[in-house]
Design a protein around this nucleic acid. Structure first.
Lengths: 146, 146
DNA sequence: TAACAGTGTATGCATATACACATATATATC
DNA sequence: GATATATATGTGTATATGCATACACTGTTA
């Protein structure tokens, strides 16, 4: 990475900078999670379901700040692999998703791997700096969603 | 977004937080760039080529911190649309990519749109805070790439 | 010069992402 | 009760992303 990158619109672009960080972080977490067979996105999805329990797709999309249709596709992969089940709800318009036993096991298997890489990053970054970064990212998120 | 999201591993995950911000920022910039027909990723790509000039795919991938093969696919779209040309270099192993006239025009057309949304974000966020955020993201990037 | 190691790029496959649109159901209004 | 409207979800299509691998060419070495 030369300093050519530091000049011009591209490097100063908030969006590009965020995507770049997301790419590199994603690669790091994917590598760490590899023994579990989960990707970082899938781990996050199972983790969210573990916390939220039975939930509709739309509400889960809101919680995770994801596009509803993206979530549908991502869930399809997890359903196919037996980690999530997608069942009808009272209101026949809605469907609720939830972790299966296999999904809970897989999450439990992946959790130590996640903890390790997360701890590595936080140690390198410093808890204080992560709090600050997290706050600033929330601000960006709030601005972008407005 | 309720505060359920604030509990548990998912919300605290550095990777998930970064991806979330990247998603929302991407949507915002995509919307702003829509009149030009470019997506934020394509705008960044053309912008980088405008700064860097003729360059090999591998080197461009390094500059943009992207996977080589991802860049190949993204470039194919831009070549198809006539904004980039991919030509043979001296060394027959290598190929160099560069903006076409149409690519320069398209970039010039998109630039004001980008400036507007970028300026909106920076105004809301504050220049100071963006500098800090940018620094922190660089730190994450450096940690993840190590 | 034939074999081989190195370099640069592209392709096969799979997942992630989101817009436009279609489908299905529930609720409100007349 | 029929029709319009609102709500919830899924599909078609397209781009973005990256690992594993194959291909193409260069340069070296036996």
């Amino acid at each position: 990475m030369t300093d050519l990158d530091a000049s011009g619109a591209t490097a100063k672009c908030v969006c590009f900078t965020l995507r770049k960080s997301a790419r590199t972080a994603g690669k790091l977490y994917d590598e760490a999670l590899k023994p579990s067979g989960l990707k970082n996105t899938q781990f996050s999805l199972l983790g969210a379901l573990n916390i939220l329990g039975e939930i509709t797709v739309g509400r889960l999309a809101d919680e995770m700040a994801m596009d509803r249709t993206t979530l549908t596709r991502n869930l399809q992969v997890m359903v196919r692999d037996g980690f999530v089940e997608n069942v009808a709800a009272d209101d026949a318009r809605r469907r609720v998703v939830r972790l299966t036993k296999a999904g809970q096991s897989k999450l439990a298997e992946a959790l130590p791997l996640w903890r390790r890489v997360q701890s590595q990053v936080l140690t390198s970054l410093g808890d204080e700096r992560w709090r600050r970064l997290s706050d600033d990212l929330s601000a960006v998120h709030a601005i972008a969603q407005r």
